[in-house]
Design a binder for these strands. Structure first.
Lengths: 115, 115
DNA sequence: CATCTTTATCGTATATTTGCGATCAACGAT
DNA sequence: ATCGTTGATCGCAAATATACGATAAAGATG
């Protein structure tokens, strides 16, 4: 890939984008839904998903990477659960994003035309 | 790429994942922020971004694909603005997602261990 | 018409993502 | 010690994404 121009984006933007990216796959959304309420053995997640064990494992890794879930060793198996702090933080991040976006535009009419 | 197992994910999940994916790049988040409040000529967006014109154009295309922004021809230039309906819809989608995820888990203590 | 400006698209290179089967490591059970 | 279970990781293949410069298309301007 060619390199970036010069500057970078703010850390906040990057962090939120990372979370959004993690949410950017139906399989991972499904996993989060499965984990909502009840922690789950990896195998149980696999059973409920239309994807192979190895693929599901990669998606779990992805979600772990951004902190949305945690896995705890439980004998030979691993019990996955949501990290509610991270979930709340992500929720806030999106809420702020949309608030910031919507605030100046929601006065009924469309955006003022430019120029 | 090898094919999927058999089943697919629900249309809702896919739609939300698509939006999340579109938000999954700091450049695109930045564009949305730039467009918050004031509609903008493509060139102005480019000027404010640490990316080349062609790259920005691709990101704009991506955002248009999921409907979050619209572009209106204005003489030789194109004026981009948020599609507030789509933004509101995305906002709701995420709100619902997080509500669904957080509802059963927010009773102070951690998730019940599985098994 | 020739030219400039503006933005999309093409062509290209590279990186990342997605998916699978196969294998490995860890553990419990026999 | 061996075997089965469980889940991560490896190796691979194909698809997407990211980025850029170059070029094309469309409209304005001289």
């Amino acid at each position: 890939m060619a390199e970036r121009k010069t500057v970078e984006f703010s850390g906040d933007l990057i962090a939120l984008a990372d979370v959004a990216k993690a949410l950017g796959h139906p399989g991972r959304l499904e996993i989060l839904r499965i984990l909502a309420g009840r922690a789950c053995i990896c195998g149980d997640i696999v059973d409920r998903m239309p994807l192979s064990q190895s693929t599901v494992s990669q998606h779990l890794k992805e979600l772990k990477k951004v902190g949305l879930i945690r896995g705890e060793i439980e004998g030979p198996r691993i019990c996955y659960c949501l990290d509610m702090d991270a979930v709340a933080s992500a929720q806030q991040g999106f809420a702020r994003l949309f608030d910031g976006i919507a605030c100046c535009n929601s006065e009924g009419e469309e955006n003022e035309k430019c120029g």
